[in-house]
Structures are given as structure tokens and as C-alpha cells.
Amino acid sequence: MTTRPQRFVALSLIAIALIQSAALAKIVYDRVALLRAGKEVVLKLVPRDPRDPFKGYYSSLNYDISQLDRRLIAGGRPDFSVGDTAYVVLRTGPEGHAVPASLYPSMPVEMAGDVVARGKISWVSPDRINLTYGIEEYYLPQMEAARLDNIPVDSIRIVAAAGADGQLAIKRLLVDGEPAYEEPPF
């Protein structure tokens, strides 16, 4: 190293810091853009562990759109396999949260009022298809987590932002329709 010119060392280090920062900034920027511009959709949770939805620092969330009936598959496409990308058309139901309407292998044309969510098939069974949307983990301050621990899952909703490509991002958390925990994008 001692044989290399000082200027080259400085330039290299700046390049490393810049490129690594750019990679991190890209993640943050994509998320912030999605949270700001995405369409809002209210999602209902279903209990995975019936007792405590917010275990410790983070909870793994299980949505009622995580498990879909096979009859929702649109068109003649016979099957999905694990790892495939799938697009779920969500429609706001009578209870105020999104209800899955149909499942597509590629981005469908959106109807007014519909929101399309993009997911990955995590496993399939003869009558059900399981998807993950990248919003299955929710991190909370310890105090908040303790406070939310005793609230029944049924009364919790997650408000997500959906991008034009169907990507979902968690925006805030509702308890009985009231914002219980929200953070600004920045």
C-alpha cells in the first residue's frame, strides 16, 4: 500500500464511500417514493400465533391476502409454482379493508378503485396459494410493541402504499380504524 500514491488512496476511499452510500440511498429513495406516491390500501391481519401479534421488537405479519383460494386465479392459466411472481387485484370490501378479487401471472390492467399488489408465491397446496409481499415484518419500539401486545389481531389493520408496479410498502398501523403508529417517510 505504501507504494501507491496518496491521491489514489483518497480517490479509492471516496469512490467506495460514494458507491456504498448510493446503494443505500437507492433503497431509501425507492421506499420513500413509494410511500409518498403509492395508492393506499387497507389490509386485514389474520393471527398466526393467536396470542401475541407483536412479539418483542418485530412481528411477522400474516395478512388475509397472504393465503388465496385457487379459484381466484384468472383466465386459463393452470398453475403457479413456488418463487413465481403473482399479481393480486385488491378491491375495498364492505368492511373497509381490501379483499382479493383475482390473481394474475402478469400485471393486469387496473380498474378504477382497484389496487394491484405484487407478491411472490411462497408455497402451494391443492386448494390454496400462499404469497409474500415483502411487508411481512413490522418493527416497533419496545414500548409500542408492549402496548400493542394486548390488542386483538382482529382490530388491527395495516395501511400499505402500492406502487405502479404493484410493490407494497407499510405506511401505518391502525387500531379500530385509528392510526396507532405512524412514521413520516423521513
Binding site: 479509492s12 415483502g134 413490522y138
Partner: peptide, 26 residues
Amino acid sequence: YHISGNPADAVLLWAAGVFLAAVLML
């Protein structure tokens, strides 16, 4: 930002960043 993507992708990005430092600084 509550992102629960594919953890392997995150590790690959990490490795790429460290690799860059290793190559540039020998």
C-alpha cells in the same frame, strides 16, 4: 422501512460493497 424482502439479496449487496473496497484498496 419494514422491508422484508429476500434476505439473500441483502447479503449479496453487502458482499458486493465489501468486494469493491477490497479490490480498490488491495
